[in-house]
Design a protein around this nucleic acid. Structure first.
Lengths: 224, 224
DNA sequence: GTCGTACACCGTACGACGTACACTGTACTA
DNA sequence: TAGTACAGTGTACGTCGTACGGTGTACGAC
């Protein structure tokens, strides 16, 4: 066992970049990204605040690494099924991951350098589309569109303060409708009332739009 | 002139909520949302730091107000043209506004209570869709989809560190490609090379996907 | 003219933040 | 045994949001 390996084993008990970043993600999940401070993170790891700086250069780099962990959680499109099923799997997985880590969505805007998991992911998606018969240009279009839909959906979903259809119904009745004078907002009132009456479930919303996007992309493909 | 009106006039010279929020938006546009501090904002207004708190309860409420100003900048869908043209106008305007205020995109995730401009906007969009023959449910689907596409596109565009096709070409050649070993990322290399050779212009990307979304929504409409 | 009140505005201070810097202790090599 | 490398830390600085308790000025009432 080399000295380096021994050191590796020794550090299993102590800190390392993985453990630091994973704990940071855990804190952000529980308390939001505003609740994540270097001191807070360090104390959760049972370390002094400055110890963190042995594994990340600064907080910005920590956030970059956190984002890349999130990307790593997203399922890659399976290679052995038709492209629509593959991309549906990938998109659903992405949506679930972003729902688990809502802080990640808002963070993406400010981090411009993609991490390794992000790149691996892009490669796999591009491969899937190209093999399905999309030209380079059309694959680019499809990539933009699918990503736009998934991120945009996640962004909207994150800003909704409820998770289930029941909570939505309660919020609509108790919070939204009282804010909406019927003469000023006739259509929003109509919608709220109608959706409430029908027991509208926002959970199915993602799949609906996703299928529409996939179907819209199908004709862009040069079928083999 | 009543006392209240006089006070109103007097305050034209001093501070008021509008001026505070508008200056905050200006600072965020120039220096990013991280560059916006209460002290910085106050000094830009020629005031003491604590003066701001006479117009907004705290920084969170300031951010809410800033987001609502951004919404107010987005063009409403014109009522006198066909629904696709109207929604295209609205979406293009939204995309331009979000490109002007990229900090706003990341902020939306954390603010859950829509401001008045946001509500007015939703009302106008819903009205446009309902009048075009979409049912309440289908209008809801369309709303989710269009918003997802626009926000998601803006989010992706914001995280790209370039604005023009030339800058993209430079970045690709100098920054991206060197990071991508061809054996590990064959498809990304292929794409980069092909798009570079064809002078790919990302500016047209938004319209392409938007038209696809609008076309995909058309069949959901009960034509009159 | 005087006074009470309301309001716009601000100085100070507190605790928390990110992090520069200089320092420990320990494990290893020579 | 001395030297070196590195994991981890304590202290301190400047900045942040903002609670609290002011100050000055304009006003209507008398």
């Amino acid at each position: 066992m080399s000295a380096k390996e021994q050191r590796q084993v020794a550090s299993d008990a102590g800190l390392n970049k993985q453990r630091v970043v994973i704990e940071a993600v855990r804190i952000a999940d529980r308390e939001g990204v505003d609740g994540l401070s270097m001191r807070r993170l360090a104390s959760a790891l049972g370390a002094g605040a400055m110890s963190i700086y042995h594994y990340v250069a600064n907080k910005d780099q920590l956030l970059d690494a956190m984002i890349d962990i999130v990307f790593a959680e997203i399922e890659l499109p399976p290679a052995d099924i038709d492209w629509q099923s593959a991309m549906r799997r990938e998109a659903v997985s992405a949506q679930q991951v972003l729902a688990r880590h809502p802080w990640a969505i808002g963070l993406m805007e400010s981090r411009t350098t993609p991490g390794p998991a992000n790149l691996r992911h892009r490669e796999a998606v591009t491969a899937c589309l190209r093999r399905a018969g999309f030209s380079v240009l059309m694959a680019t279009h499809a990539n933009w569109m699918l990503n736009s839909y998934v991120y945009g959906y996640a962004l909207q979903a994150a800003s909704l303060p409820f998770g289930t259809a029941d909570e939505l119904a309660d919020m609509t009745e108790d919070v939204y409708l009282p804010q909406l004078p019927p003469d000023e907002f006739p259509y929003l009132n109509e919608s709220a009332a109608a959706l409430l009456a029908d027991g509208y479930d926002p959970t199915e919303e993602f799949a609906f739009g996703l299928d529409l996007v996939l179907a819209a992309l199908e004709p862009l493909r040069a079928s083999e």
